[in-house]
């Protein structure tokens, strides 16, 4: 049984094909990176897998079950959680309460959910901000909150859409450690990131999108040495020499 199997996934916006025939298989426990230039279709891919868009073609099979076209809440209940690239905090709720909303998915008992939420705040390093209104956070902290809130739903697969954009080098390093730590708890990860210093060292495998199509897939080394990828996205800086 494949953990997640995506076959020929296609998503169109009118005439624009944002995702075209994308296929990929993921095993449990992997960290799979997704890279590609702006407008390549990375966020669209996440939105379709998480149920926010209905696919125009292809199949998304999660643990032997076709989930393509199911509503987002159902997909989250099944164990796939996502963050939003453009952050969407529950603005008038505190950081703790944001995470608590996520934690209520698996446990409707307030005390148990609170314990889970506190544990996740600790895990993600948001503990000191717990009583702050989520509206008032910096963008970097809002991104971390996106991650914490998604984690609170106790997913098997977590899809992170540029949660590390705009971080300082030190924060980036912390974020890398955090992602590895999440993965060590048994959560499979799909990670979209532009920062190569982040995506290359953490990913077991990388998928490259360009113009809605998958143009490469492989280990970070393979992808970094791929002619098409270098041409389309990486440019000279990340050619073979740097790996």
């Amino acid at each position: 049984m494949a953990f997640l199997k995506i076959e020929n996934l296609t998503k169109k916006f009118g005439g624009l094909v944002a995702n075209s025939d994308i296929s990929i298989e993921i095993s449990q426990g992997e960290i799979v990176g997704i890279i590609g230039p702006n407008g390549a279709g990375k966020s669209t891919f996440f939105a379709t897998v998480s149920g926010f868009y209905k696919p125009d073609g292809g199949a998304i099979i999660f643990r032997d079950e076709e989930i393509g076209g199911k509503p987002p809440e159902t997909i989250c209940q099944l164990g796939i959680a996502r963050t939003f690239q453009i952050v969407r905090p529950l603005g008038l709720l505190s950081v703790l309460d944001n995470v608590l909303v996520g934690a209520f998915l698996r446990n409707k008992n307030r005390k148990a959910a609170l314990e889970k939420a506190e544990e996740i705040l600790e895990f993600t390093g948001l503990k000191d901000l717990r009583d702050k209104l989520s509206n008032s956070l910096t963008i970097a902290d809002k991104k971390r909150l996106e991650l914490a809130r998604a984690m609170a739903t106790q997913p098997e697969l977590l899809m992170l859409d540029e949660v590390m954009a705009g971080l300082t080098p030190k924060e980036t390093q912390e974020a890398v450690e955090l992602i590895k730590k999440i993965n060590r708890t048994g959560i499979t990860l799909f990670v979209v990131e532009h920062v190569m210093e982040v995506i290359m060292p953490i990913s077991h495998r990388i998928m490259v999108l360009d113009g809605g199509k998958k143009i490469a897939e492989g280990t970070p080394e393979e992808v970094a040495n791929n002619e098409n990828v270098i041409k389309a996205y990486l440019g000279e800086k990340y050619n073979a020499a740097s790996f």
Binding site: Q77, L90, L105, R149
Partner: peptide, 12 residues
């Protein structure tokens, strides 16, 4: 606060 966020957290 945000219907899409709510749905992404499993809320019908």
């Amino acid at each position: 606060e945000d219907e899409d966020t709510a749905r992404s957290l499993g809320i019908n």
